[in-house]
Structures are given as structure tokens and as C-alpha cells.
Amino acid sequence: MNWHTPAFLLSYFLTLLFSFSALAGKMNNIMQLSFNDFNKNILETWLYPQNYDFYLPIIIRHNRWMYDDHHIKRYNENPWGLGGDISRLDDKGNWHSLYMIIFKDSFNKWEISSGYNWEMTWHPFKNKDIYVGAGYTVGITLRDNWRYIPIPLVLPLASIGYKLTRFQMTYIPGVYNNGNVYFACLNFQF
């Protein structure tokens, strides 16, 4: 074995170690800033809401490719319920809200969800009254089949809106015969 090989391996290992340490430090700073922004956005939405929204759940749709017919036939796909939020637009035009919603779940039992929504909003047309959004929701949900124990949720959000009305949707991922549900509601702002 050449005496250069151990020295090379040692220097390579030390370079990797210091690089990963520096990267971990930067990632920690980025995550800390993101968490601070997240908390700041929730607090600003709570303290300085610009709007109040009414939610009307309209669709629960189980992914037909991920369920057998036996399950589909017994599930509810009419999410009767209502909800509301306080919301605001930030200086970038992004939408923030704190919400609570109650609706009939797949088993036709009451489900309650509450949390924080964030959507980046775009105006793809000359008519600025039409907009689309994409973002996430973070919160908790309580369901009968989980004995109403609070379960955390982090889900994607997408919407299309016109003036004070927004069609908002999410997808709950899962496995075969569980999860894989499309949920949508109409939001009316006043």
C-alpha cells in the first residue's frame, strides 16, 4: 500500500466531515428561519385578520384505483358540514388562514379539523379577479374511527378562485383501501 493512500483517505474523510458539518449548520439556520416565519404568519393571521371565510364542504371522493368495490359502496361521499376561518393576504399576495371545519367523513360520522392554511397565489390571466393557489395545511383532525383523539395532519392544498369565492381542494394520501381521498370545499369570503 502506498503511503499516500491513507493520507488521501484521511483528508477526504475530514473534508466530507467538515462539509457535512457546515451544511448541517446552514440547514439548521434555514429551518430555524422557516419555523420563525411559520410562527410569525400564524400570529399575524390571528392578530390582524383581513377577512372571514365560510366553508361549505362539497366533495369527498375515494380514489377508485386504490379501493375495491366493497369499500366504495359503503363509504359516504357527501361531506355535509360547514366551517369558517379568519384569513389575510400578505405583502406578496400569499393567502394565510386559521380555520375550523366540521363535516361528515367517509363513514358518515362527524369529523372536525382545525389548523393553518397557506397558499401561494397567482393571477394567470389579465383579469386579476381570477386566481389559482397552491400550498399546504397543517393542523389536527378528530374522527370517530380514531375515538376523536387529535391526529396531526399536513396536507397539500390547491385552489382556484374568482373574486370572493374559492374552490379549494386537498388529497389525503394512503394505502390500498385506506386514505387516498380527494376532499374539496367552497370558500366564501366576506
Rank of each mutant, 00 (worst) to 15 (best):
His62Gly: 00
Leu43Tyr: 09
Asn94Trp: 00
Leu14Trp: 07
Trp122Ile: 04
Phe167Val: 07
Ile72His: 11
Asn28Lys: 12
Gln168His: 07
Asn108Thr: 06
Thr141Cys: 05
Thr15Phe: 12
Asn178Met: 07
Leu89Met: 13
Ala24Gln: 14
Asn187Met: 13
Leu17Asn: 12
Lys40Met: 10
Met27Arg: 13
His96Asn: 07
Ser19Glu: 10
Lys104His: 09
Thr165Ser: 13
Arg166Asp: 08
Gly93Thr: 04
Asn180Leu: 06
Trp122His: 05
Ser21Lys: 11
Asn39Gln: 13
Lys104Tyr: 08
Asp129Thr: 11
Pro6Glu: 06
Ser21Thr: 12
Leu186Ile: 15
Ser21Tyr: 09
Thr170Ile: 07
Met66Val: 07
Thr137Val: 12
Met169Phe: 13
Ala134Ser: 12
Ile160Leu: 14
Gly174His: 02
Glu77Ala: 07
Tyr131Ile: 01
Ile58Cys: 05
Trp46Leu: 15
Thr121Asn: 05
Pro150Gly: 01
Gly174Cys: 05
Asn94Thr: 03
Phe188Val: 15
Cys185Pro: 02
His4Pro: 05
Arg143Cys: 07
Phe103His: 03
Phe54Arg: 01
Phe190Cys: 05
Asn29Asp: 15
Phe13His: 10
Ile42Val: 15
Arg74Ile: 13
Ala22Glu: 10
Pro6Ser: 06
Asn29Arg: 09
Leu16Phe: 13
Pro49Asp: 06
Asn127Gly: 08
Ser97Asp: 08
Lys104Val: 05
Gly174Val: 03
Asn117Ala: 08
Trp110Asp: 09
Arg143Gln: 14
Asn94Pro: 02
Met27Ser: 15
Trp146Met: 15
Gly84Phe: 01
Leu43Lys: 10
Ile58Pro: 00
Gly174Phe: 01
Met66Ala: 14
Met100Asp: 02
Gly133Met: 00
Tyr162Ser: 11
Lys109Arg: 15
Asn145Ser: 11
Asn117Asp: 15
Gly161His: 00
Ile42Gln: 03
Arg88Glu: 03
Asn145Val: 11
Leu9Cys: 09
Lys109Pro: 04
His71Tyr: 14
Asn41Gly: 13
Thr15Lys: 14
Val181Asp: 01
Leu186Ser: 05
Asn187Lys: 14
Phe188Pro: 08
Asn39Thr: 12
Thr141Ser: 06
Gly139Leu: 03
Trp146Pro: 03
Thr5Gln: 14
Arg74Leu: 11
Ala7Pro: 09
Lys92Val: 07
Leu17Glu: 12
His96Phe: 04
Gly84His: 00
Lys73Leu: 10
